[in-house]
Simulated assay, not measured.
Amino acid sequence: MRITAADVPALERGVALLGSGGGGDTVTVAVLLRRLLESGREPAVVGVADLPPDTLVVPIGIVGATAALTEKLPSGDEMASAVAAIQRWTGQRAQALMTIEIGGLNGLLPLAAAAELGLPYADADLCGRGLPRLDQASVAATGRGMAPAAMAEPGGQVVVLASASDAAVEDGVRAFLVSSGGWAAIALAPIPAGELAENTVLATTSQALALGRRALAAGENPDLPTLETALRGRVLARGRVLEVSRHVGPGERGRPGFGRGSATLADHRDGALLRLEMENEYLLALRDGLPVASTPDILSVLDRRTGVPLQCDLIRAGVEVDVVCLAAAPFWTDPRRRPLLEPRAYGIDCDPVVAG
């Protein structure tokens, strides 16, 4: 299929829902993508099974403080520079692109890069949702590994991490971002299309587009059965946010932690209190103190007036919201992989809530 300008609103809504409160603001990136598509450069999104097995697919995306992207806008060359660097280092030419992460702005911006570079776009990603760390990606879960990785920042610096463990790649990226203005484009080594089914989360762009279309079709402030049918999920609460608290979370390997916090709301249906524990994404929901949903399932908070997903850093007391839970991609329900995303992976002492 080809992504057109008419698809952008639905795709934006879908990737925002899959961001689980993280992944960065999609509004500015959607404008950039829409303008590119209106010029006639429409990327072809190709199913993994439809790509020749030897097609070399390069995962690309944005890493770092995505909020800085709206303050320090991309020049448009960053992803092309990162792809060129990984091609030089590996000696392999990119024959297709894919996103590292479907949740949030990375569900949109790599499509623009594919259109600019004239390359097909594989319908898969490395996360299936929004995730905060590279060492949580699917290629880390399967043991394929992250390195080598090439980064290009808006000022023109290009760095290649040639060989390192997944944890070291994550640390190296964070260290580079300190001096790069907060964000950078990243490209990973090409993956043969024949290996994508084993190492990636499949069909995520087409699924995000379908999810967004259903969400928009449900309209603003739908009743709960309509909302659950549209999202194919379950509503955990509908009510007013009473309190939001924030603090710095625990760090790892000597670096500062991500922002951590919680939001509490009263469910209008029965007065129950729902508390959301959050980091860069919503991680755990407790209803009257009992866990009712958790990562790796996707928790999303929707503004009742508009249906727009609220990011963790934007949720505020007094807002009327719907809290919904969407099922995790099957890739992450495998017990061998789930520990990378379950609550304890974020330092929360709680077993994952397994949907049944």
Rank of each mutant, 00 (worst) to 15 (best):
P148A: 06
E170D: 08
V323R: 03
R260K: 13
R2E: 14
A193E: 03
L236G: 02
S163I: 00
L283D: 09
G76Y: 07
G194S: 08
S206T: 13
P296W: 11
A285K: 06
G128R: 10
S75D: 12
E320Y: 05
L283E: 02
E198N: 10
M146I: 15
Y121L: 14
R275E: 15
D7H: 14
S165F: 13
D267L: 05
Q95F: 02
R41C: 08
A84P: 04
W183G: 00
M146D: 03
A189D: 11
A193F: 06
T55C: 11
L273A: 11
R232A: 14
E195Q: 11
L227R: 10
A185N: 07
Q95I: 06
R41P: 01
V45L: 12
D77L: 14
R41N: 09
R88N: 09
A203W: 01
A10V: 03
G182D: 03
Q207W: 00
V308S: 10
H247E: 15
R13K: 13
A147E: 10
L56R: 15
I100K: 00
W332Q: 04
N221D: 15
A272D: 12
E281V: 06
H247F: 15
A84H: 01
V235M: 13
L284P: 02
Q87R: 13
T66Y: 04
P309D: 08
V58M: 06
L51F: 13
V173G: 02
L69V: 15
G182C: 05
V244R: 02
P190T: 09
T4Y: 06
D125W: 05
R41M: 11
D123Y: 02
Q95K: 12
V46R: 01
T26I: 01
A149W: 07
V27W: 13
A114K: 10
A272P: 02
P52Y: 09
A164T: 06
L326M: 13
P110I: 03
V169Q: 00
G21K: 08
G21A: 01
A218S: 04
P52L: 08
G118Q: 01
E277K: 05
N106R: 04
L188M: 14
Q311K: 10
G128M: 07
V244G: 07
S81K: 14
Q136T: 07
T55Y: 09
I348Y: 03
A112F: 02
E116M: 07
R260I: 05
V324Q: 10
P335K: 13
G47Y: 03
T90R: 09
Y121A: 09
R275W: 01
A112Y: 00
A114M: 01
V27A: 15
I60N: 04
R232I: 02
G289L: 10
M151V: 00
G22P: 00
S206G: 14
T66C: 05
A96F: 12
A65V: 12
S179N: 15
E78D: 09
W332Y: 06
R13E: 14
